[in-house]
Amino acid sequence: MTYTQADKNRLRWRSRRGLLELDIVFEQFLEYDFDLLSPADLDVYQDLLMLPDIDLLELVDGKAETTDKRLAPILERLRHWQVVKTQ
């Protein structure tokens, strides 16, 4: 699908989670990477956001592997933002 600014804002809102560990990763990702996603990436990102927080955290942490191959590239990008830069 095509994404309007409002659609993108909706995905930004849905990136707010119940776990602080995820919020921290998504905060960095939204700031520096989210706007670079293609419409096809955004389709996948939308699906990724449907996962329960606990499962999503395990995937982002690399403690579990997804069976859905489409999610792998976006998870890779999220993992990149997991390591915060030294303060």
């Binding site: 989670r17 119940g18 927080d53």
Partner: peptide, 11 residues
């Protein structure tokens, strides 16, 4: 304001 199963109780 968020999907119910994403409430902070999950933590």
């Amino acid at each position: 304001k968020v999907f119910p199963t994403r409430s902070h109780t999950v933590a």
